[in-house]
Structure formats: C-alpha cells, structure tokens
Computed example of a mutant assay.
Amino acid sequence: MKKSLNQSRLDDLMSYAITKKNIFGAVLCVEKGDHSLPLISGAGNIQADDFYFIASVTKLYITAVMLKLRFENQLQLEDKISDYLSADTISQIHVLNGVDYSNDITIKQLMSNTSGIPDYFTSDVVSELISGNDQSWHLEKTLEAVKQKKPKFFPGQKRKAQYSDTNYQLLGKIIEIIKGKDIQTIFKELIFDELQLEKTYVYKDVNDSRPIPLYYKSKPLHLPIYMSSITPEGGIVSTAKETMWFLKAFFNGRLFPKQDLIELKRWNLLFIPGLFYYGIGLSKQPLSLPTFNKELLGHWGQSGAFAFYYPDKNLYFTGTVNQFTGHAVAVRLMGKLIKLV
C-alpha cells in the first residue's frame, strides 16, 4: 500500500533529514493549493515557528516588487538601468574587450542574470565569511570590487547566464530610486503589510538574535554585519509559515498579475552555484535526471532556505535545512514528499 502524507509521516521524514551529515536542524511547511494539506514540522535544533534567514529566497520578493511596479506603470523590464542609476554608479561595471557596456544593460537582464555583470560573491569572499571574517558588502563596496573583474559575456548574449548577487543589489537600488524610500520600507509596505506578515522583516540590527544561527558544515556562522548589508539579495528573515503565505501569493496573483508568471519562465541552465535553471527572477530546480524537465519553481537561499512550487501536484514547500552546504538534503526531502501526494 502506498504511504500517504500526513503529520506523522512528515515528522518521520524530518527526523530522518537531521541524521544527514551536518544537518543539525530543519523546518518544512508543505501545502496544497486547495488548502487540503497544511502541514509543518521542525526537527533538531529548529522549531516549526523559528525565525531564519531566507537568504536568496529574498530575490523572489524583489521579483514581486518589480512586477508590481511594472503593473503600476512605474517601470518596464526592458528599461535600461542607466535610466535610473547615475553614471558614477554604473560606469565600468561591465567592460569587455575594452568597451564599456554598462549603459546597455536592462532591468530584465539583471533579473535573469544575463547582464554579464560579475558576481562579487566569489570563492574568496565565501572563504572569508565562513572563516568568521564578518564584513559588510553594501552596494558601493560591491561595485568597486566588480569593476576590477572581467565579465564572461556581453549583456543579453544568447544562451549565456551567470548567477550574480551583484544584479540584485542593483535592482534594490533601482527600486529605492523609483519609490524614494529605502528597500526595507518598500518591502514592508508592498509585501509584508500587504500580506499581513508579522514575523517577516529585513535584518538590520546586528544585535538581533532572533534568527537561528547559520551553519557551514559543523561550524556555526555568526555574520550579522554581512546579513544586515545585503537586503536586496538576501536580507529577509521569516518563518516557514509566513514564507508559505508569500509563496502562495507570488504564484496566485496576489502581488502582481498572475499571467506575468509565463514571462518569467525563460530558462537558462546554470551550473554554479548548483545545477538549476534561471528565468526572470525565478528559478527551476530539477529533482532528478528522469524528471529533469519537471517544474519545481521558486528559489534557494545560501542559508539552506527554500521556497518552491510544484505545479504538477499543486504543492508548495517552504523551510530551511539551515546549512550552507545542505541543498541536496532539501531536494531529496521535497522529492520524497511529492511521491507521497
């Protein structure tokens, strides 16, 4: 007899997940689109209602804001970033073969990681952070570093994409300029308040100890300065339940017209920081080789956070394994849950 998904089964799977190497805690919320399966479970050192860093899942919130602004005719995705950002800000962020293409880059290219702008979040930066060298990576510092790097391709070059957190820092700045407010306030007004998210906020206070500590392998990471400096690319704190509320709103037309989702599915295959497809502010994660083209849509966070929708069975998943290197565990966990429904 095929096992079905219920609270007991979910609890068992979560208990098993934390037996994997360097997974000290995990939380997962799963729901069906028809509200028939609202389940949540925490295991190890994470309780079901704990706060955690959603990290790059924040990029979905940026996507939602961008599409909302477009619906309100405050921007177009084809707009050049030079329409919003000063020459001093963007000059020489993309110089290839001696030519500066910075003024040619569009908002859509930032969102889709097809701008060619190098990523500041290199292996050297990662090494410093995981060694405990907590540091700020605000936009000005990021762009200064990027201007010293060579892009790998021209902006919008066909079938070329490179995951770059730099893109989303720039998107955050564009949003601030359009709205005349800081990104923290914009997130609150356009998303958190709109969805009545009371446990979701932007991490800014370095003394804030509410989010559960991050891990890199067996080592706890304490990076308050870094996490407080990267709001547009990864600075939101939330819970599994409230991330679920956002995820369902994202895919069901609550924040922007639902038909806009079709446009986001213009995929490029990425191999770094993992094997997945990236569209326009949205990613698609393969579960296995036999199901490589199935749509698990949403976003990862480097913290081990995840927020994905599986249209084939109308399933939504949110949570975290709270591990810098734990994404494979989360993929297998979601795969097992899909088979039970």
Rank of each mutant, 00 (worst) to 15 (best):
D11A: 15
A328I: 03
G234A: 01
G25I: 00
K150S: 15
L333Q: 01
L85R: 04
G281L: 03
S303M: 13
F324K: 05
K108E: 13
D124W: 04
H138N: 12
K219L: 02
G33L: 11
A307M: 15
V206M: 08
I46C: 04
G25Q: 03
K336W: 01
H94W: 04
Y203C: 02
F324W: 13
A240Y: 06
K21P: 07
D49V: 05
E233A: 11
A161Y: 07
D260P: 05
E198S: 14
I183Q: 07
L197D: 01
S164A: 07
G33C: 01
S238I: 00
T239H: 06
L67T: 02
K2A: 06
Y277H: 11
K108D: 05
V237F: 11
S56G: 06
I178H: 13
R254C: 07
K32D: 03
G172D: 12
I236D: 01
K188C: 05
V329E: 09
L129S: 14
S4I: 14
F53L: 06
N73L: 09
V125L: 10
H35V: 06
T291L: 14
R266L: 10
K284G: 08
K336Y: 05
E233H: 02
V126P: 00
I107Q: 01
S288M: 09
Q259M: 09
Y310E: 04
S8T: 13
D50N: 15
L171V: 11
A64W: 01
R70A: 09
T291H: 15
L287C: 06
K149S: 02
L170H: 00
T58I: 00
N97Y: 10
I40Y: 05
W137A: 09
G274R: 11
P213Q: 08
Y277F: 12
G274N: 12
I230H: 00
G172N: 14
G25A: 01
K339V: 09
T239D: 03
K108M: 11
I236M: 08
G301C: 07
L195V: 06
V126D: 00
V331E: 14
W267P: 01
D34L: 05
W245D: 14
K20R: 15
V321E: 05
L60P: 04
H327L: 10
S102E: 04
K265M: 10
R9W: 06
